[in-house]
Design a protein around this nucleic acid. Structure first.
Lengths: 214, 214
DNA sequence: TCTGTGAATTGACTTGGTTAAGAAATCTGC
DNA sequence: GCAGATTTCTTAACCAAGTCAATTCACAGA
């Protein structure tokens, strides 16, 4: 698929993977804060400046794995089929993610995925990094929605983007908590779908359509 | 109001204020990253470990000023008058904030407030810190809403909390952008109220009530 | 005025991250 | 296959945030 790649490029790719794999292995084994970057560099057999050339911060050694998720929501709206509303496209995409056990939905009981998830969410600096990605996802989605929505107010796109990103983050965290409690993804799946439908109903029809008397 | 405070306590208070004021002055003058904590310690005439005893991180020198905002939204719901719905209480509280030109609403054109705001939002590590406070505000609000909402689903409280915090954050950033564009708070106030009403309508009645055909 | 305690200082240390100079490896044209 | 140009890596030193241990200082209570 990418044959025209010189030895130099291939070596860089391999070095990058070696560094990242080494780092994550060590982090999973001893914890993020207990492993220094010189430890990682030593085990991966590179120098410290080289490590920082591949990954600009220690956190990037971990979070680069889902760096591309920043644009997913935006793309879903931009590339939806004609006639499909933005919110329907987002809703359906989340349901597809649940069905596919996409880790980003929180509905995945693979041991390695859980360990990785725990590493990230038990380390404050990694959580902070994830928040930054979510903020970027929100900005990208807001911009795309601004062109897709026919509201009379510009601010609607930004508000909806914020609500959608918050919603999917919360749905994922609820699913993840159920998995951590020891249940299987297959077992949780129906509830996850029901929650997602409920959450998107809340976005579509508001609190008044869900809990009228509050 | 706090007469029974020994000289020791008063001195600690004064030292704390001196350090923080020194830091913020220097940060506003030269930028957060251009001022080191030893610079601050030197000007404030304390040692570096002392500075870190008062403020555990460099960021805390700045953000401690609105550390208490974490619980505001939650308190508004918990302490609302009987008969008032949670969402009405939050809506009204935000409108009150606009009327009072509370900096947290973004509707404040005071020079010092703007400078402080710019300092925070142009410094990534400070923005990250603010996000953490918002996350805490969201958690607190979710917990309070869980007891105040009569929805049949537990997840509704968490979802609504996420949407409310996102909404107020976005409303504030829109207001702030208008102020930065050079307009006065008095001039912007009517639009800010209209936006807030629109945003809370979105929370109450969903997208379907605002932009039906998207 | 003396004594015990909490706080401040000093100085050294660890870790994340950067920089400069030079050595080593890869690529290009012949 | 080789020489020169280029990219990458390493070494070594450096800076800034944050921590720690030992010592000194200053307030408080008798």
């Amino acid at each position: 698929m990418n044959a025209p790649m010189g030895l130099r490029e291939r070596k860089k790719q391999r070095t990058r993977e070696t560094i990242s794999d080494t780092a994550i292995t060590l982090f999973l084994e001893h914890g993020f804060d207990q492993v220094s970057v010189v430890d990682i560099a030593a085990v991966a057999e590179v120098s410290k400046p080289t490590l920082f050339k591949y990954f600009p911060t220690k956190e990037d050694l971990v979070v680069h794995r889902f760096a591309d998720h920043q644009t997913v929501a935006s793309s879903v709206v931009a590339e939806r089929s004609p006639g499909v509303s933005a919110i329907d496209a987002l809703h359906q995409h989340f349901l597809d993610g649940l069905a596919a056990r996409d880790p980003i939905t929180g509905l995945n009981d693979d041991e390695d995925v859980l360990a990785f998830h725990h590493l990230v969410y038990s380390t404050p600096s990694l959580v902070a990094r994830v928040s930054k990605y979510l903020a970027q996802a929100e900005d990208a989605l807001a911009e795309t929605l601004a062109g897709a929505l026919d509201s009379d107010r510009e601010i609607t796109a930004a508000l909806l983007a914020g609500q959608v990103i918050a919603t999917e983050r919360i749905l994922a965290s609820v699913n993840w908590r159920r998995i951590v409690a020891g249940r299987s993804a297959d077992e949780v799946h129906p509830e996850a779908v029901a929650d997602a439908d409920h959450a998107y109903a809340l976005l579509r029809h508001g609190l008044a359509g869900v809990a009228p008397r509050t």
